[in-house]
Design a binder for these strands. Sequence first.
DNA 1: GTCTATAGAGGGATAGAC
DNA 2: GTCTATCCCTCTATAGAC
Lengths: 208, 208
Amino acid sequence: MTAQPTARRRNRIQSDDVRAHIQQVALDLFIEEGYEKTSLREIASRLGVTKAALYYYFPTKDDIIGSLIAERVAVVEELLEWAQTQPDRAAMRIELISRYAESLRDDPRLAGILRFLKRNQTLVDTLDAGRQLGEQLRRLLVLLVDPAEPLPRQLRRAMALYCLHADMFPLAGTATERHEAMLEVALELMASADAGDLPGTSTHRQPR
Amino acid sequence: MTAQPTARRRNRIQSDDVRAHIQQVALDLFIEEGYEKTSLREIASRLGVTKAALYYYFPTKDDIIGSLIAERVAVVEELLEWAQTQPDRAAMRIELISRYAESLRDDPRLAGILRFLKRNQTLVDTLDAGRQLGEQLRRLLVLLVDPAEPLPRQLRRAMALYCLHADMFPLAGTATERHEAMLEVALELMASADAGDLPGTSTHRQPR
DNA sequence: GTCTATAGAGGGATAGAC
DNA sequence: GTCTATCCCTCTATAGAC
């Protein structure tokens, strides 16, 4: 599409493209049929090559999915580092939810990865990158949840985070509308966890 | 422990026990290592038999996990049938959440099955019983969610159902306390979806 | 009911030509 | 970079003795 500066640079770009293409096709198949049931032969076949060719780009099958997870790990790491520099914890929590939602919304490739992660957690736990991501989610929860709070409030905060991952059930609306709804409900859950009384148990509100 | 009436009856009871024992050991391994990575040889070894013995109790590997899922399908089916006979839809929704929570709380074996289901959804979709369970969850959502409502309210109701499945993150407290917290947050989400205004956007409440 | 032995298929990964 | 050919392994499932 665009002009290629030099042959050497073009090869590098093509190589990255091929890598990304393999990742995408493999991910689609992993989601459709499951990771173990998808063979390298099948991935290669859909790409129009043989499975031996895949080994030029990825040393093992695990590295194909592992490399995708690692990209997400890098994004979440940035978020965590930002959060740890914030002095006002209450404000940070709210902003953290918003930023996390943003990070989910902005990368169109991410939806597939998240779907895979949710549907193959046992496998993910066997991968280095997967365990890193699990550890990051635990750190996120530690930042959001105060262990001294009553259990229902802790649960509200945890559900706020989970809510942002919730575009996998068949909700109507455009992707943007769904994301707005998810963020709205997540922020409501956080506000409800902050509130002094619980909705439905009293008619007045004391916004802390 | 208890006396066995007759030899014939004892054999029958033992056979059921063995079946249940196989299911339990297999489920534990499936959760620990994943379904595909767990071989029948490994299950048999932990049971102290050879894998050929397992084929006397289950015709295939899929039937081991399938039979566990089928038990859950029967419970949810009862719930759905009850819900469909209720005239007052708003009251039914609240009661449905409570009854669903109850059904999760009452069966101690269920926690493991649910954990497996959540962590292996792609596999579950390839099993007959798994697809039935997926269809039932969709029917549950249809009963809970009104497609004419604004998206955020639909999402709150869906999250109420999901909240009841949420005892997989590391929350403190006893199992009973966690269940109480889950039900409380779920009912709050339903109430919030029913309310005329949204918490945080206004200071008065109009309980519909 | 449980065993031994094995069939039969398919997988990930590698060697080496081109 | 991509191919063909192949190694080596593990798995599910079955046959048939006890």
